[in-house]
Design a protein around this nucleic acid. Structure first.
Lengths: 149, 149
DNA sequence: CCATTATTGTATGGTAGCGAACAAAATAGA
DNA sequence: TCTATTTTGTTCGCTACCATACAATAATGG
């Protein structure tokens, strides 16, 4: 049916893409009145819930590359929502803190957990667990292949 | 455990993201020697397998927005891999065709289906089917929410 | 102590994706 | 017919992601 090099979009991989972007689109639409992107929201989220953090730890927690995080942080700093200060210990590290404006914005931001509820809330728990396990194992296989070259 | 506005990355949504990007990263790494992006590969793929196509149909087949596709097409044209000509019927439409260089490149491109195999090949068929069904239903719920506002 | 290596962050350039605004062409409706 | 709407595609500006190359600081091993 499908020739050798056919993309075959009707597959698990295609659905991970669609599902990911549908969720992001919904987050972005919800956050648009606040002039905030979804990843920016995640960052404010983490800082508000866990207190000031060094960029390195934030990147580990949210699984963002240094370069990616660096860019997003600089836009958050430009918007005066986040402050960078040198952490006492390591002169390379930058400590990230919510500004007053950042805290104020944070308090009026919507709760996005309804999106996770909307997407996966009505789904049978066992099936959801299976899904997570399959996605996790697929991700690990892919990342192993990546490391090997 | 998780506070009201906590991102809780350890969830199905987080794994869809990781899985999507791991797959894309592997595709991109494989295609890097050929100076081609993964979505560019999908487009060449579709044109090679299905013959010349109008941009509208290509977008529907690959589920790409007009704006997104338009940008990628213009880079493919700049690389002289794809040609745009006006389709006879509708003066708005542009017919997309592989150039000779595009066909030549296509012939030496690697088959990326090994990635799908690597990710999902070893997984129990029933569990894979469940995963696809869960992702599909989640995507549909999200898209319904998007349309409603 | 000094040279090497590892870590942290930045800057640049590229791909991919979306929304909004626009122009041109086609279609529908009055 | 002539106007209004829909469709198709482009352009602009933005987020987000990655790879690469770079600078600065730690940490490690002679």
């Amino acid at each position: 049916m499908s020739s050798r090099k056919d993309p075959e979009l009707v597959s698990a991989a295609a659905w991970t893409k669609r599902c990911y972007f549908a969720g992001r689109a919904l987050m972005d639409a919800t956050l648009r009145p606040h002039d905030l992107g979804s990843t920016q929201w995640f960052i404010l989220c983490h800082l508000a819930n866990n207190g000031p953090s060094v960029q390195r730890d934030l990147g580990r927690a949210l699984e963002l590359e240094r370069a990616t995080l660096s860019g997003i942080i600089s836009t958050l700093v430009r918007k005066d929502l986040v402050e960078q200060s040198s952490s006492g210990e390591d002169q390379r590290q930058r400590l990230l803190t919510l500004t007053a404006a950042g805290e104020a914005l944070w308090r009026e931001l919507p709760d996005l957990s309804f999106i996770h509820e909307a997407a996966f809330g009505g789904i049978d728990a066992a099936e959801l667990a299976t899904t997570i396990r399959v996605l996790q194992s697929a991700t690990e296989r892919l990342q192993n292949l990546l490391r090997k070259d």
